[in-house]
Design a protein around this nucleic acid. Structure first.
Lengths: 147, 147
DNA sequence: ATATTTGCAAAAGGTTTGCAAGACG
DNA sequence: CGTCTTGCAAACCTTTTGCAAATAT
């Protein structure tokens, strides 16, 4: 993934400001999920003046445009993650080291059937996320908690 | 569901205070999800003095004990719901009228397999929730939004 | 009697808003 | 240039905490 962030932003009709590009670069360099504040801290190394609201506003725009995905941690905070996988999928998140793994399974059809058949409603969105400990963290022990 | 709330609370080693019983009664009388503040407002009709922290603390205890379940709304707030269904299941929630319907489907095995096989991690919990509009709200139109 | 529970007030913590100044296209 | 972005400060709102007084068993 090189310098096509400019194109991606333009595709969303967002101006390709240095800050937005830096955000994408930071997310791209990370294999785990980051909080808005994490991103802000890393960005401040490059930018003298940078407000947290800018980070929030941009994350919202990028998430809305489908460029990044988000994770809802059991601690109720939102974290963001840059997805390279084009297909619809879900995530396994490590509670301890924040690693994200794509899970190429989705019960979309079954869920749709349950709703169309029984409830007769309309599905707007669905959340499917697995929270746990990745292989590495599992070795280290001492991290387990009942989430 | 009659007056066994006393027993339920004792089973969790929680003191059966009038407020805890009232909370369960309120949740039991509702087929939709309620916010802590909703519950607080309803309880204030019966109790002169009642703090919101009490509601939060008790919801936490009841949720921890598995007596009530919770819903994570796309708006990021937590809502609570008294589950009558004993088996493991998930929820369809109506974004508009707050109705909750049980979805007797869970991809537990597939998820476990994905994690055990590919990621080799440990599953601590999983979230599976469908957000949408129930049949009734679907008729009324005008409520749709992209969540 | 004693461990829990509660009220109150205050703090915490993440997220949002308003608006004038600045930057992209 | 016009519109979209940003900084800053302040507000928002849900949730949590500390502690003394009240209550369940």
């Amino acid at each position: 993934m090189g310098q096509d962030f400019y194109q991606i932003l333009r595709g969303l009709r967002l101006k390709a400001t240095p800050k937005r590009i830096a955000m994408l670069e930071i997310l791209d360099a990370e294999r785990g999920y980051l909080s808005p504040e994490d991103i802000w801290k890393r960005m401040r190394k490059q930018f003298g003046r940078l407000g947290l609201p800018t980070v929030y506003r941009n994350l919202e725009g990028l998430y809305g445009g489908g460029v990044i995905s988000r994770v809802i941690h059991p601690n109720r905070q939102l974290y963001y993650y840059l997805c390279r996988n084009e297909e619809h999928h879900h995530h396994f998140i490590c509670i301890s080291c924040r690693r994200v793994e794509d899970v190429n399974f989705c019960a979309e059809k079954e869920l749709q059937d349950a709703v169309t058949g029984g409830i007769k409603g309309k599905v707007l969105s669905h959340i499917l996320q697995i929270n746990g400990l990745c292989f590495t963290c599992l070795q280290k022990e001492g991290t387990a908690r009942a989430y």
